[in-house]
């Protein structure tokens, strides 16, 4: 809040900017240039962000039998971050994601390839999957397909790719532009 206070207008502020918001709608403390803020978008992003993430997890787990899967799940999760980026700008997305996107991509790729080799240990072939069903009290019958683990790798990989795109084609370019403006 102190940040916005310090920029806060005096009498001389232009009429176009006097009603721009200074509240912190997003999770992180940073806000972009006040004139570019859009309240509706920020509020929507605030509400939708967790919802979309949960939905992406649903897609990840539903993937084997219904529409979805690691790839679409990862993309949808990526969209949540894209939404945040659109609303909050580069400061926001870089401050909430502390994990380096390349590391995420790397971990995802490693998991996916490693999982594809695991069936060899059980006498299967590469990329083979098995279905386990078991009953958990309270939750009822649970069916787990081993390809889920591959999907988790893909999910992380795709999420990492989207975040990396946001970083390189989004915030990096924005930072370049800001640097040029400051000059």
């Amino acid at each position: 809040m102190t940040e916005t206070e310090s920029q806060s207008p005096g009498e001389q502020e232009a009429w176009t900017t006097w009603d721009t918001p200074s509240e912190r709608w997003l999770l992180s403390g940073y806000t972009r240039d006040r004139r570019e803020r859009k309240i509706l978008l920020e509020l929507a992003a605030r509400i939708l962000f967790p919802t979309v993430l949960v939905f992406s997890l649903y897609l990840l787990f539903a993937g084997h039998e219904h529409t979805g899967g690691g790839f679409s799940g990862g993309l949808v999760a990526g969209q949540a971050f894209v939404l945040r980026y659109l609303a909050g700008g580069r400061m926001d997305s870089s401050s909430t994601v502390s994990l380096q996107p390349p590391v995420l991509i790397g971990v995802g790729l490693t998991i996916a390839t490693f999982i594809s080799l695991v069936p060899l240990a059980f006498g299967g072939t590469v990329l083979e999957s098995a279905i386990y069903t078991f009953t958990v009290p309270m939750l009822g019958q649970i069916k787990i397909v081993t390809s889920l683990f591959l999907d988790i790798g893909v999910y992380l990989l795709i999420l990492g790719v989207v975040l990396d795109l946001l970083r390189t084609l989004g915030s990096a370019i924005e930072a370049d532009v800001a640097a040029v403006e400051r000059r």
Binding site: P102, V103, I105, G106, V107, G108, L109, T110, I111, A112, T113, F114, L117
Partner: peptide, 8 residues
């Protein structure tokens, strides 16, 4: 897999 680890 090595590419993934190498990235990580």
């Amino acid at each position: 897999m090595a590419a993934g680890l190498s990235l990580a």
